[in-house]
Design a protein around this nucleic acid. Structure first.
Lengths: 227, 227, 227, 227
DNA sequence: AATGAATGAGCCTTCATTCAT
DNA sequence: GATGAATGAAGGCTCATTCAT
């Protein structure tokens, strides 16, 4: 009855499809997801995915791209310039975990990317270049300052991966934790506590590695200031 | 007509099926794996999976059980008793990474379980109870001694997870690393270096946490004894 | 808002659709042609075919009708009256082949009908009545005069078909010739040579049949007059 | 109940599929044919085509190959050596038309290949190399002897195509003839008459071309003997 | 006991067509 | 009058599974 403009209507269907696809891909990954289920959840026809996106892979790529675009953190860049490296790292980690629990934003962004890591598709290349590389580069810079090594150093890289690993693990391991310790509920507070722990654990390790790696080497790392 | 020892043949087929299924499930996960490919690699008939195991899920569960049985490390238990906690942790980590790169033994045990974490099936419960819980308990014991807290302590749990995370990450992240830094080849030496790094990183963190967490609290941690 | 002359626009769209449909149907036949491709080439909306023609089959029938209308050769009728039958036949054949290679006019008229012969649709009846029967009647008249038999004679019919066969074959057989003798390029000259050959071949056969069929029978064939 | 050997049973299903596929492909061509219809006619499951042949194209290629193998004519080769070229040509043409009406053999062999000419698929290459090229080469040899030119001569090629064209036309044009002259029934006798006509028509043309092309050129063609 | 031919549900995709605007 | 978003039937194909042997 109401005169809905077609343009908006199309966007609405597209948006609903992306929403539904994000959920389904986040739940079961690319392989196990079916366009039927996605269309069903979006309230659209079975041919809607192909009409709007061409094929399943194109929709998935769109989802990955959406996950990429949403993950901007200019604040961290700013932090990097003004505060100590330790605080920058802590802010970075809290930013990522806050995204995971933000009630305003759907939760599938990171889950989809975590699935992509476990079962790579051709879309992995795009994710690596647009999301992972910038974040890893940023992380390597921060880590490098703390341990007093260049960002490209192999040790720096491995430390960065140790930090990333902890973040991704808490995305993947929820079902396991639920089985291991049913009493450990993933409330807002628990997740804050986990983020805090990862920051503490990682900074402690980095500081120690910074000391033992180059004991005689004078460092300009911000970790000095903490002494 | 020829008197083939059927019993042995059956066991042989079963064994080959498990071997092949382990490889395939490790490579692509449960969903993407096909019984055709498994039978092909085992040199068995297409109906072999259903004949020997009932259905695909039953075979997968069997695979998970096999992964459970194979991952015995009595040496670590021994180490736990005789050496320092740090050395026990180091030995545990090296043991896992050695399995992943041992050319004699198939490396699929850990990979299958890593996939199971990312895409849980009904078999996850069994894996958690028979593999993960014992290992996590062991790890929590070791970690608890280092940081001077009880194994059930929340902080202990989170530290254990931080360590597990790093191991699993290096199983999953290979495709990403290959894209990020094509020059970083996963040779035998590189993997040893990674294992060494994870041990160093984790122990450094644990020691620091042990200090900062309860500075005034006298600890019976084995790390103290090692001084 | 702008006052586009709708009537002209509609006609223009219709014309472009027929043009595009002619090309597509000529290339791949009725079954393999898609309305999408036709609309794309016509620069029209995807619903244009259904809007202007009702459905795909109606458009195709329209195409066949258009092919009918376009294939008028009053000149041949004139030739038939004034020149010898041999020259009339030669002119008829050259007329057909000239259409196929005329760069100004689309060549799809004959191709579409050739496809229709290989894969008949309900539209075949119309084509037969409006295009084929007049031409075959004309051809039978010419052939009848050359071989000295009535146009309805079975032998006359078969001779006419032998001539039609050669024309249609060179429309269909291009892919085969390209595979058989890749060096035989279908240039303008080559096609002229083929037309010339078919005329020569057919006239030679007709004259011989005319002689041998009724050696004692005095003929009023125009071929006689040409001596 | 009866103990049918599985091997024979498989062959039976395969044979039925080929039978059904031959019919369907002959009726509507490759594009318009559906595996569903083929399986339905063969009394087999919808997945039977993929199980036995891999995919639709592979089944079609098999059909083409079968059409190839069945078309051996060693008798013609013998004729070529012993009789005159004219008789060899006549025998060749009668052989082809006899195949079309042989009640023992299914009629689709030639129809499928005729469809392939009108709407080529990737399988055309195989048909050209295994069926068409041998026959065309043979035909060119015979024609070349009659007109006194080498088999590779362009004129020889065109004459050969004029003959092939007439044969193929009578396969394609049946629906048209049925509409044009409903009284011209394609009985066994009518087809014999057509074959006879094509032979007469072609030989007449060839002899005339042989004369006019090289009047001063002494020829060793077997057509000489007919003088 | 073990095979492999056969099954049917279900996947992604394409297509002509419809309908609200 | 004309658009283009949306439809649903149908296509080829894959898969785990079944069943007669």
């Amino acid at each position: 009855m109401t005169a809905i403009p077609q343009e908006l209507n199309q966007d609405a269907t597209r948006t609903k499809l992306i929403q539904a696809a994000g959920e389904v891909f986040a739940e079961v990954g690319y392989q196990a997801a079916t366009t039927r289920e996605i269309c069903r959840r979006a309230g659209a026809n079975i041919a809607a995915v192909n009409y709007h996106f061409g094929d399943k892979l194109a929709l998935y790529t769109e989802i990955l791209k959406a996950a990429v675009i949403k993950r901007e953190q200019p604040a961290v860049e700013a932090l990097l310039a003004t505060k100590t490296s330790e605080e920058a790292l802590r802010a970075l980690l809290f930013g990522i975990f806050r995204q995971l629990t933000d009630p305003d934003r759907p939760a599938w962004y990171v889950k989809v990317m975590a699935h992509e890591l476990a079962n790579p598709t051709p879309g992995l290349t795009a994710v690596v270049e647009h999301v992972i590389r910038p974040n890893v580069t940023l992380l390597c810079t921060i880590v490098g300052r703390i341990i007093g090594r260049p960002p490209q150093d192999m040790k720096t890289r491995m430390c960065a991966h140790s930090i990333i690993a902890q973040v991704i693990h808490y995305i993947h391991a929820r079902p396991v934790i639920a089985l291991l310790w049913p009493d450990w509920k993933m409330t807002q507070e628990a997740i804050e506590e986990i983020a805090s722990h990862i920051a503490e654990f990682s900074i402690a390790a980095l500081k120690e590695i910074g000391k033992s790696a180059h004991p005689a080497h004078p460092q300009k790392s911000t970790t000095r200031r903490s002494k």
